[in-house]
Design a binder for these strands. Structure first.
Length: 760
DNA sequence: CTAGGGTTAG
């Protein structure tokens, strides 16, 4: 006999039971469930005391209390109604009744009860019932596994699977589908392949549910080709199969192919449902294709799905992600009974708009609107859930809105959502982004479970605050706990090394990333390393490094080298790097500013004109230099030299400038790209730069001990950086400025960036 | 007991 596939999950290795030749399909028990259970219909009828009664109108609790005898066959539909109502308390009453009447001897009812507890999200109870089952059938194993998969403990699902095989029970096609789903959540293609081998061996690859699960496994592991293969092998494809393959295309960036599958469905008259439509919509959202999205929307109206709330929510989200606030708003206002998901979609949609907005000003506006919607939601009496909180915390972190973030934190504590990993991670990230590394690490330590994202967020937080050693210690801890780092984790690790100038360590980790974890370097990794060499003045090494990478260096990589060359006065290399940069036709106005500064200061007028004409060609507009500060629930914005704020503020700023000058600060001019006719004003004053205005405003409008948090759309200039350093000690205030490249935390004349992280 | 609107790290 050929050797059997081996399942290995960290702690155990087990051989599958030898098969008897034919795969045992559904057990008797599964058949029984299908016969008695119902599609999730709203009118379940049952027989009570000989009369056929619709369960929904039946106050079964009353019946139970009055001591009515319930036939064993009635428990399942009653329990099903509890799932539908999501009422754990009623489940418990029924459970007690089941015990009282001795029905707990019935393996079928008790197996169903495991499912009920799973559906109510109470795994402890589900386990308890499972452990006391009079006889464990394959359906019970499967149900328990499903519970673990749905409650984000896929490793336990695999453990249960192995336990099941040990007792000699055979998996059904549904069990295998669930195991595949566990592999999918663990993103373990290795284990998935082993299960796939088993499936091929028993010739059930063409089974609908197995095929569907295989399709989503491969899709989640990034292999669209295998996903489509799995889909094609399904003998009887159902709506789920089609929807899954469409999702697979969307998740893997092949939206066009996904649309083709949908068109095929339409032309072949294959049944589709609301889920198919929402998948299509979310595909349009991720590829930001408003044009296709609008067509799908009209199709939805034509097909009469317009009033469907799920679909409405998806359409709203689509419009928001594509920046059509007006359309989204129209839909929102036109919806009579909005659900929590509607609110969540609108908030998450605005959060997304921050990322995809055309400029920083509208990005900021979206963020402020998201917070506004959140407060309306709170006043409406509806209770926010973990999705709401995660989105809102993201918004706070992007707006550097510490006060709102703290309020949300308090609300999360009260409502008990802190135990959720995603919410906990979002909280850690919020404190990191708002400059409070202390509270971030406190929140991180207090988490009961951590995902890769939690670790990565905290490591990056330490790195961004200049706490390199702590970042690296945390990374080592993460490895000890057995969490596998990814590309993004290494960005944090390398940036920690870079900030501390730890060349040896950086190169070691860079090596480890590629050799031990088979992660290919991306521009972000290289940027960290280039920054490190540049910081140490080792410009030639930086160049060597750029030449050694396998991909074409991007705009950021070259511009960091140009910047470094300017700082260290190596103009020859600077000109070379600038040539490479110009070949890429950069899009960032700040890059042009830097190049102009370089050519102006060396009086290379021809190059100045070359850069200027390239700017025209590339339609580079003037730099949008804005700063913001959130105070209480309001966001205040500042433009350089604006005179829109109170006279007190300008007075305070002038006083601070005086004080700073007495302590050795010397104001310096800086290059700017401003003015209506887009002419280059060579050097202009930095006195009223937007961040200075925002800081002064913050001093005036917050209590003395409070930190001042400013967010800035461009990179901070050297002058403002010096100024804020000085006044942090003059005023004894902590000042945090998050600019377009990094976070600066000024305390007592020191900045967390180590004074190397700013521009001209 | 299998897909299924809204959530976290760069």
């Amino acid at each position: 006999m050929a050797s059997l596939p081996t399942f290995s999950v960290n702690y155990c290795t087990l051989q599958l039971q030898p098969h008897s030749g034919k795969h045992p399909n559904c057990s008797l028990l599964t058949q029984k469930i299908t016969n008695i259970s119902y599609k999730r219909s709203h009118t379940i009828t049952t027989h009570l005391n000989g009369n056929s009664v619709p369960v929904k109108s039946l106050d079964f609790l009353q019946a139970v209390k009055e001591g009515t005898k319930i036939e064993t066959s009635c428990y399942v539909p009653l329990l099903q109604e509890c799932i539908h109502r999501n009422s754990l308390s009623e489940v418990q009453i029924l459970h007690a009744h089941i015990i009282k009447t001795g029905t707990h001897q019935d393996p079928f009812v008790m197996t169903f009860l495991v499912n009920v507890y799973v559906k109510c999200g109470t795994m402890e109870e589900a386990e308890r019932v499972f452990n006391n089952l009079p006889r464990i059938y394959v359906a019970a194993w499967t149900t328990l596994m499903t519970g673990y998969v749905q409650n984000s403990q896929p490793e336990l699902a695999i453990r249960v699977f192995l336990d099941m095989l040990e007792t000699g029970d055979y998996p059904t096609h549904i069990t295998l589908g669930t195991v595949l789903n566990a592999c999918t959540s663990m993103k373990s293609i290795k284990l998935g392949n082993q299960i796939h081998a088993y499936i091929v061996k028993y010739c059930i690859e063409d089974d609908t549910s197995v095929g569907n699960s295989l399709c989503s496994l491969y899709s989640n592991c990034g292999s669209l080709v295998s996903a489509i293969k799995a889909f094609r092998r399904i003998r009887e494809k159902n709506v789920i199969s089609w929807t899954t393959v469409i999702c697979a295309c969307g998740e893997n960036g092949e939206a066009f192919q996904g649309l083709n599958f949908f068109v095929q469905m339409l032309s072949e008259d294959i049944e589709f449902n609301e889920f198919t439509l929402t998948s299509i919509l979310s595909m349009c959202s991720t590829m930001l294709s408003l044009c296709v999205g609008e067509q799908v929307h009209s199709l939805i109206i034509k097909l009469g799905y317009e009033s469907n709330l799920r679909i409405r929510n998806s359409v709203m989200y689509l419009y928001l992600r594509c920046g059509s606030v007006y359309e989204a708003r129209k839909l929102f206002d036109g919806t009579q009974h909005v659900s929590l998901v509607t609110w969540n979609s609108v908030i998450a949609g605005h959060a997304q708009m921050i990322e995809f907005a055309k400029d920083d000003l509208s990005a900021h506006h979206s963020g402020a609107e998201a917070l506004n919607i959140f407060s309306i939601l709170n006043r409406s009496g509806m209770k926010p859930d973990l999705y709401t909180f995660s989105s809102v915390l993201t918004v706070c972190s992007k707006l550097v809105a510490l006060q709102q973030g703290e309020q949300v934190h308090a609300q999360i504590l009260k409502t008990g959502f802190l135990s959720d990993v995603v919410v906990g991670t979002a909280l850690v990230n919020m404190y990191n982004k708002c400059g409070s590394i202390e509270r971030a690490s406190k929140a991180f330590v207090e988490m009961s479970t951590r995902t890769l994202i939690s670790w990565t967020s905290m490591i990056t937080g330490f790195a961004n605050h200049g706490h390199s050693q702590q970042a690296l210690h945390l990374f080592e801890d993460m490895l000890l706990v057995g969490v596998r780092p990814n590309q993004i984790t290494f960005v944090g690790v390398l940036s920690a090394c870079s900030n501390a100038g730890m060349v040896h360590e950086a190169l070691n980790y860079f090596d480890m990333m590629q050799k031990d974890y088979k992660i290919r370097p991306v521009p972000d990794h290289i940027v960290c390393l280039i920054d490190m060499f540049v910081r140490l003045g080792r410009l030639e090494e930086a160049l060597d490094f750029i030449k050694r990478i396998e991909f074409k260096p991007n705009e950021v990589i070259w511009s960091r080298l140009v910047e470094g060359c300017m700082r260290h006065g190596n103009m020859e290399l600077g000109f070379y790097a600038a040539e490479q940069l110009l070949k890429l036709k950069p899009k960032n106005p700040e890059t042009y500013l830097m190049l102009l500064d370089m050519y102006l200061s060396t009086r290379r007028w021809e190059d100045v004109f070359r850069v200027k004409s390239l700017m025209e060609e590339e339609k580079i507009s003037k730099i949008q230099d804005w700063s913001w500060i959130s105070i209480k629930d309001k966001v205040h914005s500042f433009k350089p030299n604006d005179r829109l704020h109170s006279a007190d503020m300008y007075k305070l700023l002038d006083e601070l400038l005086d004080k700073a000058e007495n302590l050795g600060y010397k104001s310096r001019e800086c290059l700017e790209l401003i003015d209506e006719d887009d002419e280059i004003k060579t050097f202009s004053s930095t006195v009223y730069h937007s961040e200075k205005l925002a800081v002064a405003f913050g001093m005036l409008n917050t209590v003395n001990a409070a930190p001042i948090l400013v967010i800035k759309s461009t990179t901070m200039c050297r002058d403002c950086h010096n100024f804020i350093k000085v006044i942090s000690s003059v005023t004894g205030r902590e000042i945090i400025v998050r600019d377009s490249t990094r976070l600066h935390r000024f305390v007592d004349r020191q900045c967390s960036c180590g004074d190397d992280g700013f521009g001209l």
